[in-house]
Simulated scan of single mutants.
Amino acid sequence: MKSDKIPVLIRLETVISDDNGEERNSSSHTGMLRRVEHADVITYEEEYEGSMIRNLVTVKSASASIKRSGAVGMHQSFKPDGITENVYQHPHGSLHMETRTERFFHGKGPEGGKLEIAYTVRLNGQEERNHQLMFEYEKEADGE
């Protein structure tokens, strides 16, 4: 059945760069994949400053969105050659976020998929920062 949840291993890598340098982060998570018509929907949780954040990543062939709720909140959308806006909420306040997607790739197979996005973000009208996101998800081994 297409809507069954599949346990997946997730690897997330981000690079943020501007005139002041580069910041790299990588993390691994376990989550659930649900394959629905025309989309992969991945859910997972992560810890942020002692609180949990729930993540919902929806990936289609030509667009993606990341919705975070809990300690931080946002709904960031990625559309090739497009600009999207949202509000990023965190414990210290809210910021207006403008995202411009420059490069978008999604490949998927029977065991998972890979999402690569290059984009810029402008927070509260400040200088743009360059972002690269690599998000891989694959079915957990059954242990057989």
Rank of each mutant, 00 (worst) to 15 (best):
M1G: 15
D4Y: 03
K5A: 15
K5C: 11
I6N: 04
P7F: 03
P7K: 04
V8Q: 02
V8I: 11
V8W: 01
L9G: 15
L12D: 07
T14E: 06
V15G: 00
S17H: 10
S17F: 07
N20T: 12
G21R: 10
E22M: 11
E23Y: 04
S26P: 03
S26Y: 06
S28K: 09
T30R: 12
G31E: 02
G31F: 01
G31D: 01
M32V: 05
M32S: 12
L33D: 02
R35H: 04
V36G: 11
V36Q: 13
E37Q: 07
D40L: 02
V41Q: 08
T43I: 04
Y44S: 05
E46V: 04
E47N: 12
E49D: 14
G50S: 10
S51V: 00
S51E: 09
R54L: 09
R54Y: 09
N55K: 09
N55P: 10
N55W: 06
T58Y: 00
K60F: 06
S61D: 13
A62E: 15
A62R: 12
S63L: 08
K67Q: 14
R68W: 01
S69Y: 02
S69T: 14
G70K: 05
V72M: 08
M74V: 01
S77Y: 06
F78Y: 07
K79E: 12
P80G: 01
P80A: 01
T84L: 09
T84W: 07
E85M: 07
V87E: 13
V87L: 09
Y88Q: 10
P91G: 11
P91C: 09
H92G: 05
G93K: 07
G93H: 06
S94N: 13
H96C: 06
M97N: 07
E98I: 08
T99E: 00
R100L: 11
T101E: 14
E102H: 13
F105D: 14
F105I: 14
G107P: 00
K108G: 10
K108Q: 15
G109L: 08
G113V: 01
K114P: 00
K114H: 09
Y119C: 01
Y119F: 11
V121C: 13
L123C: 06
Q126C: 10
Q126P: 01
E127A: 13
E127W: 05
E128K: 15
N130W: 07
H131S: 11
L133M: 12
M134I: 14
E138Q: 13
K139S: 04
E140N: 04
E144T: 11
E144H: 11
